[in-house]
């Protein structure tokens, strides 16, 4: 498996506080990876750096077959290059219908003029119906997404990410605030997604991570503390210290 994303030696600080400290990280294509860490470990900032929201003070972020640097690209260019991101809080466009949300996310030309002249064809409609089924929202296609439940919004957002057809999917705490059945469904969706692309899941919940059954990276104070299978890292002394506190 070839490397899809390589982060090396990245540091960033806010007003003297080092949020990310010499962090290095790699993920291969079609790999499912969980990133865990206590509060303030730099999980969100790590995602911000990859998606271009935060520019690091030093380090490199290379992506794709040609290893292009993501640092000089804008958020939208990075997204177009195939990096999708799901936020901690579900952020869907509540004023618009589920179908509209998915239609916006569908992988198409993103420039204003192509969007202006875009009219969906049969295939597009079919794809949206298909996606809606995948995320269990077939019946709610024409409802305003603001009317959905919290869990449904999470799924809609995942559906939007899938519609983007990203090569790398970054998912921030997908299971937060979900019922146990919803969690199970979410796990399925993520594992299904990882068959065709790389998926990075940031999560607090050890049980959820265990169910994902994948390689785990533990972040602490802005750098990698441990990496390996879930059993491997949970037996690591340092990880236990950090999670239980001293």
């Amino acid at each position: 498996m070839s490397t899809l994303l390589e982060v090396s030696g990245v540091s960033v600080s806010f007003d003297g506080f080092k949020a990310i400290n010499n962090l290095s990280f790699q993920i291969a294509e079609r790999e499912l990876r969980a990133v865990i860490g206590p509060n303030g470990a730099g999980k969100t900032t790590f995602m911000d750096i990859i998606t271009g929201k935060t520019k690091p003070d030093e380090g490199r972020v290379n992506y794709g077959d040609k290893g292009v640097s993501l640092l000089s690209m804008s958020e939208s260019r990075i997204a177009q290059a195939g990096v999708g991101r799901k936020f901690q809080r579900p952020t869907v466009f509540e004023d618009q219908s589920v179908a509209d949300n998915l239609m916006m996310a569908l992988k198409k030309a993103r420039g204003p003029f192509s969007v202006l002249t875009f009219r969906p064809d049969e295939d597009d409609h079919a794809k949206i119906v298909e996606l809606a089924e995948e995320i269990g929202l077939s019946g709610a296609l024409h409802r305003k997404s603001g009317e959905l439940s919290h869990g449904q919004k999470q799924w809609l957002e995942i559906g939007m990410l899938l519609a983007q057809e990203p090569r790398l999917l970054l998912v921030d705490e997908p299971a937060a605030g979900m019922t146990p059945t919803e969690r199970e469904h979410t796990t399925d969706i993520l594992r299904e997604a990882a068959r065709t692309r790389a998926v990075v899941v940031v999560e607090h919940d050890m049980e959820f991570v265990r169910r994902l059954d994948c390689k785990v990276t533990v972040l602490h104070e802005g750098s990698v503390l441990a990496e390996g299978s879930i059993d491997h890292v949970t037996q690591n002394e340092k990880v236990i210290d950090v999670y239980l506190g001293r």
Binding site: S74, E75, S76, A79, R85
Partner: peptide, 12 residues
């Protein structure tokens, strides 16, 4: 409604 989110969808 949410400019940043649209950016992460890949729209300039």
């Amino acid at each position: 409604d949410d400019e940043a989110r649209v950016r992460f969808l890949g729209y300039p």
